[in-house]
Every structure is written in structure tokens, then in C-alpha cells.
Amino acid sequence: MELIGAIITLLGSFVLLVASIGLVRMPDVYNRLQVGTKATTLGTIMSLIGLVFLMPQWWGKLILLIFFVMMTSPVSAHVLARASYFIKIPFSSRTVVDKMKVNAKAMKIEHEKK
């Protein structure tokens, strides 16, 4: 039981290490956001699952924590990437596809006349 938990926690911390290397290696904001979110979410969830195996009496709280991480972390990265697209932070030179360009005009909308 403890061995399984320790192995899963170790794997999670390895994923986190890869994420932190990727943060330094990646060329522009969008790639960094992707690395910093996908890998960090996976690493955190794996560490928490390992903790469930190590401390079985905390499983309720830990599952609640996993739910919170899955709810908040991707959404905040999505909002950040969107905002940085709209203030025109440049892509790296190797970017090929820009799917957001099509509907960028439709995103502006008038709010609240007074």
C-alpha cells in the first residue's frame, strides 16, 4: 500500500520536474502556458492520488482537492492565454496555425449603454 503510494507520488514529482524544465525551454507565452498547466495539473493530481494511498483516512478531503485543481487550473490558464492573445503578444516564429484569427472580430461586443 505504502509502496504504491510512494511510487505514484514519485511519478507525480517527476512530471512536475519535467514541467519546470519545459517552462524554461519553451519559446513563447502560449507554449509555456500549455506546459505549465497540463503537466502541473497531472503532477499535482498524481501526488494527491499517491497521498490517498499513503493516508487512507484523508481520502474525502483529497478527492475534493483534486476536484478543485481540475476545476481551477485549466480554466485560469485558458483565460490567461486568451487575454494574452487579445493584447497581441507575438507568437514564436515557428507557429503555423492560428485558429483564433477567424472569429477575433466577433469577440468584440458592446456592453451597457447609459
Partner: peptide, 8 residues
Amino acid sequence: TRTLRLNS
């Protein structure tokens, strides 16, 4: 008048 971007 306020012009805001629509949130996703």
C-alpha cells in the same frame, strides 16, 4: 458606454 470583450 463600456466596450468589453465577451468572456469565453
